[in-house]
Simulated assay, not measured.
Amino acid sequence: MTPGPARILLSAACLVGLIAAVAILTGAVRVGSGASSAPTAAAAVTAPAVVGPDPDGGTPATVLAVADPVTMDVRLEDGRTLRVRALGVQPPARCYADQAMAFARRTLAGRAVTLAGDGRSDRFSRALTWVSLSSGEYAVLAAEAGVVSSYAADAPPERMPAVRAAADRARAAGRGLWGPPCVGGAAAAVSATPG
């Protein structure tokens, strides 16, 4: 029995969807407008283990470039450069992604920051760090502005209540991605992440 045209189209659509899902999960495809789900490692970036526990509360650095709302290249005081993933928040995948990127650039680019991490990195070779500015914790500032949702994965548990509270205030005020046209949009699933 020969399969009908509808069955062939359905099979092809399923195959294309499966290929797209694999590409997204492996980081071969970027999702969203402006936010990169799979940052590429810069050649000048050193091993992420250079940011570890610091007895003075963190490692001073300067943000050289912002790759997406949670990824930045920094220069450490000793001159080495490092790609960093800011912990505590997750950028929107689509709706409000451009605004989240603009906020990150405006808040981080060229600024002095303090990095706190335990030497771990993610699958993109980004150092997993808590990022602080003189004006406050980046995760709290971004959540309060409504440009990101709280995201507890890998974040220090003791720092997350302030991020969650800031995200709750933004959501209650309908600010940023919690207001029109997004009204939580793609970020709703991320903000529901336990932690």
Rank of each mutant, 00 (worst) to 15 (best):
A162D: 15
A43V: 13
A13V: 14
A155N: 06
R123V: 07
C182S: 11
P60C: 10
F103P: 00
R94L: 01
Q90P: 00
Q90F: 02
V22S: 09
A97T: 02
A97L: 01
I8G: 02
A41E: 08
S36V: 09
G179M: 09
A188G: 10
G58Y: 05
S125K: 15
A104C: 05
T62R: 15
S135E: 15
R105M: 03
V140Q: 10
T81K: 00
I8T: 11
A12W: 13
M1E: 12
A192D: 01
A166D: 13
V74L: 02
A165Q: 13
A116S: 11
G27Y: 10
F103I: 02
A6C: 05
G184W: 05
S36Q: 08
T81P: 08
D78M: 04
D54S: 15
S37Y: 01
V84W: 00
R105H: 02
V140G: 10
E144F: 00
F124L: 05
G185P: 06
M1G: 12
V63E: 02
A13N: 12
F103Y: 09
A12H: 08
D68N: 13
V113D: 01
T2G: 06
S121N: 11
W130R: 12
R111W: 03
D168F: 00
M72D: 00
G195N: 06
A23G: 14
A187I: 08
V16R: 06
R85T: 02
D154G: 00
S11N: 11
A165K: 11
G17V: 07
L133M: 06
R120W: 07
